[in-house]
């Protein structure tokens, strides 16, 4: 449990203290902390998942001074995740109280789910973030490049930490 809490703190720190200040480009704003929601333990009730997503979103909103934006995006992500995972056969993993990772769900299933959720999260986040002044090409480029970088970092984190937590 302590290790899991530490893992959450480290991922949040990576997002809030490092990635949010990287300033690689105006088009690259990766949101890696959503890995915490994607990899939530599978036995958690749906209501708990929604509440955890809201809590995590509020924390990120607090540190990024974007009240409601990440919270709303996290809520959509978790509801979307519930829908996607319902289509997968994860009874054994649920019974074993396992988190949703590539080692528990399989590389293909996890990669597929993570890619959709990461892309969806960035799509929604940048839409709300620039609502009323959306420029199609810039928006598309930001979503794609940020999603790709996020997925790459998530993959690295997954490969390096899954067995340890």
């Amino acid at each position: 449990m302590t290790r899991r809490i530490l893992y959450w703190i480290l991922i949040l720190a990576l997002q809030l203290l490092v990635l949010n200040h990287l300033e690689l480009s105006a088009y690259i704003v990766p949101q890696v902390f959503i890995l915490l929601l994607i990899t939530l333990p599978l036995h958690l009730s749906r209501l708990n998942q929604v509440l955890i997503a809201a809590g995590l979103g509020l924390i990120v909103d607090f540190f990024t001074a974007t009240p409601g934006i990440h919270t709303s995006a996290c809520l959509w992500l978790i509801v979307f995740r519930i829908g996607l995972l319902n289509r997968q056969d994860l009874k054994q993993q649920i019974a074993n109280r396992m988190p949703y990772t590539f080692s528990s769900a399989g590389l293909v299933s996890f990669a597929y789910t993570a890619a959709i959720l990461v892309f969806f999260y960035h799509l929604y986040l940048f839409f709300i973030g620039s609502i009323g002044a959306i420029h199609g090409a810039t928006y598309g480029l930001t979503v794609m490049s940020s999603s790709l970088l996020s997925l790459t970092i998530i993959a690295i984190i997954q490969f390096s930490t899954t067995k340890r937590i």
Partner: peptide, 16 residues
């Protein structure tokens, strides 16, 4: 969970 989701989204909309 959907009812709570909807309520929280309303609050988020207000905040945003």
């Amino acid at each position: 969970h959907l009812i709570v989701f909807a309520l929280l989204q309303v609050i988020c909309g207000f905040l945003v």
